[in-house]
């Protein structure tokens, strides 16, 4: 195992056994099933996820909304929210390919929401934020010990909202309202319409829309999650799952024992861990080069390197 996949105790290909849940989930429904199970078992008493305008309309007290007027919030714009039930989890399932500042709710979760055991899902960089907050809780009083389950999702890059708008409405020629699902896989950006249309865009097109902050990111598979998951490496409808920490190990074991997931050994599935490793390496190599280039960006002037 190379450093590009981080530390982990086990890796497996898995899928939720809950057929209803799978209808809402992005891939194998790992994130939503884990949280639903953890809520049931009292492992967490609430989870921070990326919800939508519809959810916010129904549960105004469970979200933080930015300064936009509520009716200005567009389709597919994620709204960080705290959920307490399976139904609420399902309402927030699925990937939104633009920024959802989930960590912004992390402190409030222990305050106005009264959570003692928080579940949080996030991209690798958000997992880094969570762990930094636990080790160096400079502005995060009484938060660290309340984090009961942090689930990381693989991430190659993310987009500002307006990028998604341009990609879908200009390049894919579809209205955002009519999109059912978006996905990045098999080297393409896929847009599925509610009426059955499918558009695929080459990733070459998407690159210029990526969030610049992603270009210094050195983590693909959420090395710092308790458990991390993504579609890459596993067959369609299945997910690759890394179980990383003690907490992750214990929650995963309990969920398995309760029959929450069906699994296949990673060695047996196609395309398998090899692809995950390959993509992780690609990302890290590319972004290390970016960091290198930043050193000589100006004339005798460097751009900042955040890593020490």
């Amino acid at each position: 195992m190379g450093a590009e996949l981080g530390k982990y105790k086990s890796v497996i290909s898995a899928r939720s056994t809950d057929k209803e849940l799978l209808k809402h989930a992005q891939d194998g429904g790992i994130v939503s099933s884990l949280f639903a199970f953890a809520l049931d078992e009292g492992i967490i008493d609430g989870a921070i996820v990326a919800a939508s305008k519809e959810f916010a309309a129904k549960n105004p007290s469970k979200v933080i909304i930015d300064s936009s007027n509520f009716d200005m919030i567009e389709p597919w714009r994620p709204i960080p929210a705290i959920v307490n039930t399976k139904a609420e989890l399902l309402a927030a399932a699925g990937t939104k390919y633009n920024i959802s500042p989930n960590v912004a709710l992390l402190k409030e979760a222990t305050r106005a929401f009264g959570l003692d055991k928080i579940g949080i899902v996030g991209t690798p960089c958000q997992m880094q934020a969570v762990r930094k907050a636990q080790l160096y809780p400079i502005g995060m009083r009484d938060v660290g010990a309340s984090i009961a389950l942090a689930v990381g999702i693989f991430c190659m890059e993310n987009f500002p909202y307006q990028s998604i708008l341009q990609l879908v409405e200009d390049h894919a020629a579809m209205k955002l309202e009519s999109v059912k699902k978006m996905e990045i896989g098999k080297g393409k950006f896929w847009v599925y319409g509610k009426r059955g249309q499918v558009v695929q865009l080459p990733l070459k097109v998407t690159h210029k829309y990526e969030q610049p902050g992603c270009h210094v990111c050195l983590d693909y598979v959420a090395n710092l999650g308790d458990i991390s998951t993504g579609s890459v490496g596993s067959p369609d409808g299945w997910s690759t799952v890394f179980v990383r920490s003690k907490i992750g190990d214990s929650v995963w074991a309990k969920a398995m024992a309760a029959g929450v997931f069906e699994t296949q050994p990673m060695e047996k599935v196609k395309p398998g861990l090899e692809l995950v490793t390959k993509l992780a390496n690609e990302k890290i190599t590319k972004n290390k080069a970016t960091l290198e280039a930043r050193k000589t960006f100006g004339v005798g002037k460097a751009l900042r390197n955040p890593y020490i």
């Binding site: 305050r111 106005a112 929401f113 009264g114 959570l115």
Partner: peptide, 12 residues
């Protein structure tokens, strides 16, 4: 800025 949740109320 915010009211608290039922869960928070019970905790208090």
């Amino acid at each position: 800025y915010r009211n608290v949740s039922e869960q928070a109320k019970t905790k208090m």
